[in-house]
Simulated scan of single mutants.
Amino acid sequence: MKIRFLSFAVIAVVAVATPGLAHAQSADLVLCDRVAADPADPDKPADVKGVPEVAASDIATAIKYCKVAANGSRRAMYQLGRAYAANRQTPEAIAAWRKASDKGSTSAMVELGVVYGTGAGVARDEAQARKLFERAAEAGNPRGVSNLAALGGGGAAAANPARARELLSKGAETNAEAQYQLGMMLAEGNGGDKDDVAARALFEKAAAQNHPGALERMGAFAQEGRGGPKDSDAAKAYYQRAAALGDEDAKKALERARCPYVIKDKRGNVVTNLCW
């Protein structure tokens, strides 16, 4: 079975940055944050928007400023890894994530876990992946929880969907990423009963915080009338907000709405779409 791990860098928290990390930020860190911050990183300050992935045009800038800022910031070290990964410098990305992980970055632990779980740049090592996901999960990182559940098998109690729900529910009280991940589990009936109403409520909370995935899911739920009223205008608005933040599924949904009629040949193959 092919396992899909959640990682922004290799594919793709708790509520606030760790106490004690707040301090006057250097210009290098500010610029590093602007082009390479991870929206789901628990170390990220609330006023930093973040980007789903480092844009090709920003890679050189990200590497330059994150490398300097990384000397005094584990967040910048993690973001330096994201920049290297975007530039396909896998060994450098892994080295940066190791350093950030050693300093306590749970996002770096998740990325390293994905590296070992997929064998991307290192020998595949499921045991090491599990260990890293467990460390991140125990610290409350929703992606660590979800990846650990996806890995399945033995290990900590978190390595099952029901336990993953329990752990995510704690972070979901305030954190958008946890709300989104728990909403996905409820929407899919993973780890317990399926509950579209509760899933929609969680997506709505995360969408209010501009979480791209939650905005896309709110668009789909509003379009289909899942867990609440059907509203095509609201669906379009959610999709547009998600697309503006880079969500590819939302972009495809908008395109389908613009070009809804499919022309097929005799064999049923799609020839073209008719657009409004």
Score class of each variant (00 low, 15 high):
Ser146Trp: 12
Thr272Glu: 13
Tyr239Gly: 00
Ala123Ile: 12
Ala253Asp: 08
Lys236Leu: 12
Ala243Lys: 00
Gly213Ala: 06
Asp249Lys: 15
Lys2Phe: 10
Ala156Ile: 07
Pro142Glu: 08
Ala253Pro: 01
Arg200Ile: 04
Glu92Thr: 04
Asp102Arg: 07
Asn273His: 15
Thr90Asn: 12
Ala207His: 01
Ser169Val: 09
Ile263Arg: 13
Phe5Ser: 00
Tyr238Val: 00
Gln181Ala: 11
Gly227Ser: 09
Ala40Leu: 06
Gly154His: 12
Arg135Tyr: 11
Leu80Pro: 01
Lys131His: 15
Leu112Ile: 12
Lys103His: 09
Ala100Met: 00
Ala253Met: 07
Leu202Asn: 05
Asp33Thr: 04
Arg130Trp: 08
Ala36Lys: 05
Gly117Leu: 00
Gly152Val: 11
Glu138Gln: 15
Ala136His: 02
Leu132Trp: 03
Ala24Gly: 13
Thr272His: 10
Gly171Cys: 02
Lys64Asn: 12
Phe133Gln: 06
Gly50Phe: 10
Ala9Asn: 03
Gln179Ala: 06
Pro45Asp: 05
Met77Ala: 15
Thr272Tyr: 10
Arg75Gln: 13
Asn210Phe: 01
Tyr116Arg: 03
Ser105Asn: 14
Gln89Cys: 09
Asp43Ala: 12
Ala222Tyr: 03
Ala187Arg: 06
Arg165Thr: 04
Glu166Phe: 03
Pro91Glu: 06
Ala206Ile: 03
Ala222Pro: 02
Lys236His: 11
Leu132Arg: 10
Asp58Tyr: 00
Gly144Ala: 10
Thr90Leu: 10
Val122Pro: 00
Phe203Met: 08
Pro19Val: 15
Gly121Met: 07
Val68Pro: 01
Arg217His: 12
Arg267Pro: 00
Gly219His: 01
Tyr84Cys: 04
Gly225Ile: 13
Ala85Pro: 03
